[in-house]
């Protein structure tokens, strides 16, 4: 079956601004990955088409892009997940600088992630065995620890669009991951980072992040838990 991809192209060496180009590709069935169709374009029609990809099954987080107006991973979106009767529109993640075609500059995203001190801090001498933690407490972290840093959430968030200094849902989720870890001792420092107008308070529960997250993490719920924790600390 023939499917049309309408891909946003931009090569800074050649183009003054992005434009769209259509490719007609051959898909086996509705279970074809969008990533495989992009690879087909690159390998058969136009080697200059540029995008990131690696694991091809939604765990490395390389191929976040906008497919028919929704932020998704190209490798975990199948044809049947999108309307393929019309040309499938593929664009880079919105609101961050484009490097080339579907490749975006994630450096700001990573900087925000690093700002929340995304590592366990525990300065008391460790026991000889593991630090005990109930399965219940461990499981509180699992959903947030699923994050693959693909950037789909932060670039789908209207608060991020309007305020580039907003730390964004991905970084807030990472803050949750450590603030609520019973083994961690630096919750306060981390809460200081997100307790600013550009931190957790910029989240207005719009839920775009939840809709965008390819790992189906309820990010807004996690941010709300953080806000509650901040409020408790303040009072």
């Amino acid at each position: 079956m023939k499917v049309t991809l309408r891909i946003q192209r931009y090569n800074p060496e050649r183009d003054s601004e992005p434009y769209y180009q259509e490719f007609i590709v051959e898909a086996g069935d509705e279970k074809e990955r969008i990533l495989d169709l992009l690879l087909q374009v690159k390998w058969k029609f136009d080697g200059t088409l540029t995008f990131r990809r690696s694991c091809a099954h939604g765990i490395c987080g390389s191929d976040g892009m906008r497919i028919n107006g929704k932020n998704r991973l190209a490798c975990s979106s199948l044809l049947r997940d999108v309307n393929f009767k019309k040309p499938i529109v593929i664009e880079p993640l919105p609101s961050i600088p484009i490097i080339k075609d579907l490749v975006v500059d994630m450096s700001d995203f990573y900087k925000k992630y690093e700002a929340v001190k995304p590592y366990l801090v525990n300065n008391s001498p460790p026991p000889e065995h593991e630090r005990y933690q109930s399965n219940e407490d461990a499981e509180k972290l699992f959903e947030s620890a699923k994050c693959i840093l693909c950037g789909c959430c932060t670039t789908s968030c209207p608060s991020s669009w309007s305020d580039e200094n907003y730390i964004g849902p991905a970084a807030l989720l990472k803050a949750y991951r450590f603030v609520f870890d019973t083994r961690d001792e630096a919750a306060d420092e981390r809460l200081d980072v997100v307790d600013t107008p550009d931190g957790a308070w910029r989240c207005h529960t719009i839920f775009n992040c939840v809709e965008a997250c390819p790992k189906e993490i309820n990010i807004t719920w996690h941010i709300s838990k953080l806000k509650k924790r901040l409020a408790e600390r303040e009072m």
Binding site: K111, N165, V193, D198, G199, W201, L230, A231, M235
Partner: peptide
């Protein structure tokens, strides 16, 4: 570029209020 501005007033009271 992201620029962390430090704690310049918590949004907590406003959020709770």
């Amino acid at each position: 570029m992201y620029n962390h501005t430090g704690s310049r007033g918590s949004g907590a009271p406003g959020w709770v209020l």
